[in-house]
Amino acid sequence: MKSLAELQAIKEKMQNKVALREGSGEMRVVVGMATCGIAAGARPVLNTFVEEVANANLAGKVTVSQTGCIGICQFEPVVEIYEAGKEEKTTYVKMTPDKAKRVVEEHIKGGKVVAEYTFAKENA
């Protein structure tokens, strides 16, 4: 059974790492988490991004955060990816946990946008 005392050990392990992370954040994953997003299935999408990024040891490079409604409720769950040095963000629409896994693999790790899941493609 887990106990709160374990957090002490995690904290000690992290303290060095956190110092290294300062100023990083080359990539930001933002998941829409308003009523519309939640009802459309954003929670498992967010949790998949958190898990996959953690499993791939990308915490130093990638942050995952939540935002409100961005106004395209019919395309929820919506995920936006912002990259340092890239002017345009990528907007993924109608996301699922499986699509999220593919985005982590191909876009976040591989640097290649998964075009078929983007708003541009869906709206074309």
């Binding site: 887990k2 709160l4 005392a5 374990e6 957090l7 002490q8 995690i10 904290k11 392990k13 992290m14 303290q15 956190v18 958190v50 898990e51 990024v53 953690a54 915490a59």
Partner: peptide, 20 residues
């Protein structure tokens, strides 16, 4: 609040903590 008492200024949003 109990987690924070153990973790000090480490954010609860850190991947390791969220996973825990």
């Amino acid at each position: 609040r109990e987690l924070r008492a153990q973790l000090g200024d480490i954010s609860l949003a850190e991947f390791e903590i969220i996973t825990w």
